[in-house]
Nucleic acid binder design. Structure first.
Length: 934
DNA sequence: CGGTTTCACTCAGGGTCTGTAGC
DNA sequence: CGCTACAGACCCTGAGTGAAACC
């Protein structure tokens, strides 16, 4: 239903306004450039990245580079760079656009352009022009998206969205965008194509070749792409397009897209560029930073901060503190890093897994015990069994392990590694173990990181759970809202008006909101019961939370971006569709009455508890454990260890890929460029996707020509490569390098190394560097936290984690500003009082007067402190307008860096991680001391 | 053996819920 | 003390990655 509602709205929403025309106009101005291609590479690569720096980050870096492009890319270009670096940004934005769609576009563009706002238009736009043709504008996607997007928000919709963007003012933008979207929609079908088209156009020709790009040779697919691409391009447009994509995805729009683009852009725009710039810049910058830099340096990159900085500037006011600084070079980074003693542990990995192996088997048995009482809730049973099991386990394990190890073969299982490492790092731990317990009254903490790992591939020895919960039954609409008779008359949904349904659900939502306290409490109790019963499982003798124990309810599939399957009905999942996975000797979950499971299996080589296949894309959905579980924690730990290992060979890899840019074999050159992008711009690998089945997004290895523009000159910068693609992130150029090959190459360089490790590595490294640069010993906790957030922000920009501008962002900022103004007035007033008191004291020299004077002074100081705090808050909020810190914090930043920082500077960990995060990173909180360096 | 498909996860960000500060 | 607005926590599920399985 909800969905329906949304959809409906969307439609309505569609109104898009803006027009392509506007966009075009803008574009023109810019004029594209792009073409240029060739060229020079000379420059450094880094440049690309840099720009980015949208915000704060300072980037720098640089490098040289050059060549590569050429090679790779098609030739064409050559150089480039990216200003893009940011490209990322841009893209994202695009995406974001979705929602808002409209606005977005403009925004996007801006954004995209990025960076610099100004330009924004320009160049890109120009490119886009093509689009013009493309008209794309229509953007298809967008359109759709827009709509969708609209939906969501809609209501206000459009505006709202726009508003968001708004700021930017982009009003036009917004409008435009929206309009575009709409249009697109219309097109719709094509929409996606549209995007593409646009691209193409722009670049088109050349692009075509590229196209081939793709994987293979390119060619083939390319066409498709091409088409899409063609059109568009105009840069700005493109961006839009991208967004558009998003757009289409209406939903997506909402989510991501919006966030990204739209908002950003919008904001930026509105806020001005600055903000936008920031984003962009940031992005860009980061990448660079990370990337190569070190070496590179070559380039120069002007990039650096670039324009973006301004943005920051804005913020600055308040905050003052530091901006994100970048150091340039990566590599250089320094020695500090090197230290990492810890790393070593990893090495151990190599060590014989054997050790690890052991444990495995034994467990199973334990399970048995549990089985006992079925009726009791799992949690209860767990308690009983746990203790017992634990004891047994330990003994058994250790014993077994030893034995096994010896025998084992050893594969170098990662896990093992991890553990070992850990051990290394903290040998003593063992002892403490139990003591601690959970912070908040939780049962006890299972200090799994102090235990030995299991055998290779074995995920658990005993697993018992109650199975998933199914979606509540469908509640038909009441007769007065849509009647059966009406249903029979329907021949074309497009001719229907769903206002009544929409109103009905709004009403229902309102009713729900207005429930009495008692009702809410009762419902909460009920949910707690369910959580207790179905939300946990017994995992090797310990109670672990399940991440998603509710089967996804039926509804209309939205997808993100311009998803071709948008609007399809996601069917209700029945027990007959669900496969249960648990221990043979556990209490097998019972299917709802009258039903049976599709299958019950006992595979301890996988971590899922249940799975089913969804009907939209035929994908398997899994029920898995919560992020705080051992299973997830071990994997997380391992991930960061792999990233730290990369640090040890990063310089080598960078040197190698730079050398490879000169290879006679195109394949090698392409691979080198792809790697460079992954390293410097933190692009995702970009695996192949089935066309027509999903939204048209790309990553490093699936970039198409249309996604890149080369500028000999771009806003005072020479040889700029402008990446403009949809995709979650953005950027990049070439596509010919199949991921598999790239990963194989990486694997040869370091076991466990894949394209995504670079993202983790550069993200964590950036955090470490930024924290080292920004943190000042004399700062108070609030100031230190601002520094932390800025460091985190630098990473988010690098990874292109954008979000839609919060709905009430402007209002909230206004409120904050009025508080600041009020505080300033109060200070003014206080100053007067101090002055008067001073005069009084001077005249009377009375003790009382002195007392009053001191009191007034104190009051003034307090007010000034409060003012600073408010200003810092405003700065932080503003800088974070379109940036999502959560994703990087949760997935890319080695928690030990943050924990060590907290310990070193005496900042409570609670200020950095909430309870859920502390649970997830308990292993890191326990093992990292203040000296830990990534 | 190489390309393709499938499986199993990790990553993501919007939406909703919840607690709480401020009025 | 009750109400409202806000911010943060948590939920949900789509999207992307990469290794293993399959052909």
């Amino acid at each position: 239903m909800d969905i329906l509602e949304n959809d409906l709205d969307m439609t309505n929403g569609q109104e898009a306004t803006e027009t392509a025309a506007e966009l075009k106009a803008k574009i023109h101005q810019n004029g594209d450039v792009m073409n240029h291609i060739d060229v020079s590479h000379q420059n450094g690569d880094d440049s690309m990245s840099n720009h980015a720096s949208k915000k704060p980050v300072k980037t720098e870096r640089d490098s040289s580079p050059s060549k590569q492009h050429s090679s790779s890319s098609s030739s064409k270009h050559s150089s480039s760079h990216s200003s893009s670096s940011k490209s990322k940004d841009p893209h994202p934005s695009s995406s974001s656009s979705k929602h808002s769609s409209c606005s977005s576009s403009s925004k996007h563009k801006d954004g995209s352009s990025s960076s610099k706002s100004h330009h924004s238009s320009s160049s890109s736009s120009s490119s886009k022009h093509k689009d013009g043709s493309s008209s794309s504008s229509s953007k298809h996607k967008d359109g759709s998206s827009s709509s969708s997007s609209s939906k969501h928000k809609e209501g206000s919709s459009s505006h709202s969205s726009s508003s968001k963007h708004k700021s930017s003012s982009s009003e036009h933008k917004s409008s435009s965008s929206s309009s575009d979207k709409h249009k697109d929609r219309s097109k719709d079908g094509s929409s996606s194509d549209k995007h593409k088209d646009r691209h193409k156009e722009g670049s088109s020709s050349s692009s075509d070749k590229h196209k081939e790009r793709s994987k293979d040779g390119h060619s083939s697919s390319s066409d498709k792409h091409k088409e899409r691409s063609k059109e568009g391009h105009s840069s700005s447009n493109d961006k839009h397009k991208e967004r558009s994509k998003d757009g289409h995805s209406s939903s997506s729009d909402k989510h991501k897209e919006r966030s990204k683009d739209g908002e950003h852009k919008s904001k930026s725009s509105s806020s001005s560029h600055s903000s936008s710039d920031k984003h962009k810049d940031k992005h860009s910058s980061k990448p660079k930073e990370s990337s190569s830099e070190g070496k590179h340096k070559d380039k120069n990159i002007e990039i650096k901060k670039e324009p973006s900085s301004p943005t920051k500037a804005s913020s600055p006011s308040k905050s003052p503190k530091k901006e994100i600084k970048s150091e340039d070079e990566f590599s250089p980074k320094k020695p500090e890093i090197k230290e990492e003693p810890q790393d070593e542990p990893m090495s151990e990995d190599d060590v014989p897994l054997s050790v690890r192996a052991k444990e495995v088997t034994p467990t199973t048995k334990r399970a048995a015990p549990e089985s006992d009482d079925d009726d009791e809730p799992l949690s209860a049973r767990v308690e009983k069994v746990k203790k017992k099991i634990k004891k047994e386990e330990k003994h058994e394990k250790s014993a077994k392990k030893r034995k096994q190890e010896d025998s084992d073969d050893e594969k170098p299982v990662k896990k093992k590694k991890i553990k070992k490492e850990s051990d290394t790092s903290s040998p003593e731990k063992g002892k403490k173990k139990k003591k601690k317990e959970g912070e908040e009254g939780q049962p006890e903490v299972w200090r799994w990181w102090e235990e030995e790992s299991r055998e290779d591939g074995v995920k658990w020895n005993f697993l018992e759970h109650k199975g998933p919960i199914f979606a509540p039954d469908y509640e038909p609409l009441p007769d007065h809202v849509m009647t059966q008779a009406e249903k029979e008359k329907i021949t074309d949904l497009k001719k229907c008006r769903f206002n009544e349904i929409n109103d009905y659900f709004k009403l229902k939502s309102e009713e729900r909101k207005n429930r009495s306290k008692e009702e809410k409490k009762a419902e909460k109790l009920k949910n707690d019961e369910i959580q207790k019963e179905y939300g946990v499982c017994i995992f090797d003798g310990h109670q672990e939370k399940i991440g998603n124990f509710r089967i996804e309810p039926p509804g209309l599939f939205r997808g993100r971006g311009e998803h071709p399957k948008q609007g399809m009905l996601k069917k209700r999942i029945q027990p007959e569709d669900v496969i249960i996975n648990c221990s043979k000797n556990s209490k097998i979950p019972q299917p709802p009455e009258g039903h049976k499971w599709k299958e019950v299996r006992h595979d301890n080589k996988v971590s899922w508890l249940a799975c089913w296949t969804e009907n939209i894309q035929g994908q398997t959905k899994y029920v898995m454990l919560n992020a705080a579980s051992r299973l997830k924690g071990e994997k997380d730990w391992q991930k960061y260890e792999t990233a730290r290992k990369l640090h040890k060979i990063a310089d080598n890899i960078r040197e190698n890929y730079r050398n490879d840019w000169k290879s006679k074999e195109m394949r090698i050159r392409q691979r080198a460029v792809a790697l460079y992008f992954i390293d410097k711009l933190a692009l995702r690998a970009g695996n192949e996707k089935e066309e027509g089945e999903t939204a048209d997004t790309v990553g490093c290895c699936s970039l198409r020509v249309e996604h890149i523009k080369l500028h000999e000159k771009y806003d005072d910068l020479e040889y700029v490569v402008e990446f403009d693609f949809l995709g979650k992130d953005s950027i990049r150029y070439y596509n010919r390098v199949p991921t598999a090959i790239l990963n194989k190459h990486l694997h040869d360089l370091m076991p466990g190394l894949t394209a995504k490790v670079f993202r983790t590595y550069n993200a964590s490294k950036t955090l470490q560097e930024q924290l080292n640069l920004l943190t000042e010993a004399d700062d108070n906790v609030n100031a230190k936290l601002l520094s932390y957030n800025r460091a985190n922000r630098a990473v988010a920009i690098l990874c292109n984690h954008q979000r839609a501008v919060p709905k009430n962002f402007d209002k909230q900022m206004e409120n904050l500003q009025s508080k600041i103004d009020a505080k300033k007035d109060a200070i003014k007033d206080a100053k007067k009082q101090v002055k008067a008191a001073k005069a009084d004291y001077k005249a009377t020299k009375a003790a009382k007067a002195k007392q009053i004077l001191d009191k007034k002074k104190k009051m003034m100081e307090r007010l000034e402190e409060q003012l600073v705090k408010l200003e810092v808050q405003a700065t932080d909020k503003d800088e974070n307008k379109e940036i999502a810190l959560g994703t990087s914090k949760l997935n890319y930043l080695d928690p030990r860096i943050s924990v060590a920082w907290c310990k070193k500077w005496e900042v409570p960990v609670e200020k950095i991680y909430n309870k859920t995060q502390r649970d997830k990173f308990r292993w890191a909180i326990d093992m990292a001391d203040e000296d830990y360096q990534f």
